[in-house]
Design a protein around this nucleic acid. Structure first.
Length: 106
DNA sequence: AACCTGACTTCGG
DNA sequence: TCCGAAGCCAGGT
């Protein structure tokens, strides 16, 4: 749990700017493990609320929400929409517009 | 240590 | 475009 890997993932996700989204794979790469996309999802699933992580800005490579439950997907959709991220008719995000470039701000 | 599971990704049909 | 199989990682049993 308290591994450096997790901390790194949390660090990275915390850097995703408002109005942008990132994929699990992208985060895995930035964390130093290009093929640990699934582990990233795991980390998020186990992430403590007190971290105040913008988990909703993390979506699958297909541009859709990967949450297992309908309610969760709706919430994520709503949160992103409130930040200005638009979804197309198929419920997918336009990466050309909203994909995070991976650069930390500040 | 082996096996299963999951907020993933990629490739082929 | 959609579906299924295979590959990868960390955790839990």
């Amino acid at each position: 749990m308290t591994s450096e890997f997790y901390k790194k993932i949390y660090e990275i996700i915390a850097q995703i700017p408002t109005g942008k989204v990132a994929t699990y794979g992208q985060i895995a790469i930035l964390a130093g493990k290009p093929h640990a996309a699934r582990a990233v999802g795991w980390a998020l699933n186990q992430s403590p609320p007190e971290r105040d992580l913008p988990w909703h800005r993390v979506i699958s490579a297909t541009g859709r929400s990967s949450l297992p439950e309908e309610a969760g997907r709706r919430l994520q959709h709503a949160l992103l929409r409130s930040e200005g991220v638009q979804f197309d008719a198929n419920g997918r995000v336009n990466f050309d517009k909203y994909l995070w470039n991976g650069k930390a701000r500040r």
